[in-house]
Nucleic acid binder design. Structure first.
Lengths: 250, 250
DNA sequence: CACAACGTTCCACAATGTGGCACGGCCTCA
DNA sequence: TGAGGCCGTGCCACATTGTGGAACGTTGTG
């Protein structure tokens, strides 16, 4: 609980990202802070290169490109990122469903880092940077299955939030789920987090077996076909394995 | 010149990004700051979700995935990003040279936001988040050619740094270059920024003609063939136009 | 076993960020 | 045209907040 000004500045930065391009006034309303405080913060963030004035309306602020140089280690040098791209597109072409690449952020959440859209008129939607809970999604459990058991227990001890009737909020059910994923090589989510959304995912492992990220194919409930699950699971797992291999080869 | 603690915290955040995973001690040496100051800053950034402890060595800090939710407007919802991907890969397959997608950051610099690598053993290398000057690169001049002339003059008034013998550091030469780019629809850079690196670029325009980003094919000097420039220029320009069209269609 | 290096904690001091207020420009509506 | 409202910006006395030297606990090394 320290560095109030820094914490507040980062909150403001995040708010700008969500509402860009945004004015000082809009932000003061959003935070209930004095105008001068918000103004001073924006000027400081601008001088640091993290913010810039909108070209067309200079009273509006938006995120500067500087932030792109600040990325999680897993994406640094973009070896994972670059390695994943083509296999993801091929998987999308094979299944014609949206493919997501996600990385774990501590044990808190999975974060979407890349996306290849399907061509259907009805699509699932997650944006880059969006987060989801580890226990309630296919993408999260693909990671959990390859973490030390102590980590899974730690996650359980923090409490398992329920998002729908099918969320595995019960510790034993989650443990069984995770075992099954490790055995099968892929994870499945049927309406456990967002209603009407199903997904199949597989982990991308480091050379020493540490899970770095996961690939997932996600689709509306209406297009999910249980009979084809083994085939889809294999395809997703193969894609994840190919990405892992390419990453090491690079 | 205000909010010293905020400015410093952001500098530290950037340093973590560059050196991750990094310890408190390494950062104190890097900045010459007291240990306690660095320590306090890291804890604050961690609590804000921007940093996290490395899983394998908890005394080392790395960038958290939270930053991915903070992106420049041009990439928001990743319409540009998603639209660019497949045309870039096709261009790479056609030319077998590395393709970059870059966006302008104010009039300061171009920032690489995406990359598709070629298959040659010898490649040009720019990482995501890397920056380059607007006047000295193909990717920058593709943007300049579609900005109001006042902006070009403003850039000139800030001074044109020279990076090699062929850098267009002379205002009149740059103005002529920019005119030529507008007429041709593509820009060229022959060793003007980095030695031995050549590039051909074209702008991706908004519906009202504002340049949002540029696509560039870059290659080692040794593989550049002047005779094929018109053909390559046309291919790059076509790719840029296709990306612009896809972006609007999405 | 002792020393060195490191991450972490504490606390008195004052530098730093705060926010109420006032100014000036812009737009709207009478 | 002019008054009123709204917005972004600049100022400054106050005290909250961040600072950094020093001391502590732990780890690993010669």
């Amino acid at each position: 609980m320290e560095m109030k000004s820094v914490t507040r500045s980062l909150r403001i930065l995040e708010a700008v990202a969500q509402h860009q391009p945004v004015t000082v006034g809009e932000l003061t309303k959003l935070f209930g802070l004095p105008k001068s405080t918000v103004q001073r913060t924006l000027v400081t963030l601008n001088e640091a290169g993290w913010l810039r004035a909108n070209r067309k309306d200079t009273t509006r602020w938006e995120i500067g490109a500087r932030v792109l140089a600040v990325r999680p280690a897993a994406l640094q040098g973009s070896s994972l990122f670059a390695a994943a791209r083509e296999p993801m597109i091929r998987l999308r072409d094979t299944l014609n469903e949206t493919i997501h690449l996600s990385v774990p952020d501590a044990l808190q959440s999975m974060v979407v880092v890349d996306r290849v859209d399907c061509h259907h008129a009805v699509r699932t939607f997650y944006g880059i940077g969006d987060t989801s809970p580890l226990h309630a999604t296919a993408t999260g459990r693909a990671i959990l299955a390859h973490l030390p058991k102590a980590d899974v227990e730690e996650l359980i001890s923090h409490g398992l939030q329920s998002f729908s009737e099918s969320t595995p909020a019960d510790p034993d059910r989650l443990r069984a789920e995770v075992e099954r994923v490790r055995a099968d090589g892929y994870s499945v989510n049927l309406n456990q987090y967002r209603p009407d959304v199903c997904a199949v995912a597989a982990p991308i492992l480091d050379e020493d077996g540490t899970p770095l990220a996961s690939v997932a194919v996600s689709m509306p409930d209406s297009r999910y076909d249980a009979a084809r699950l083994p085939e889809w699971g294999r395809l997703v797992a193969d894609t994840a394995a190919e990405i892992a291999a390419r990453r090491l080869g690079a």
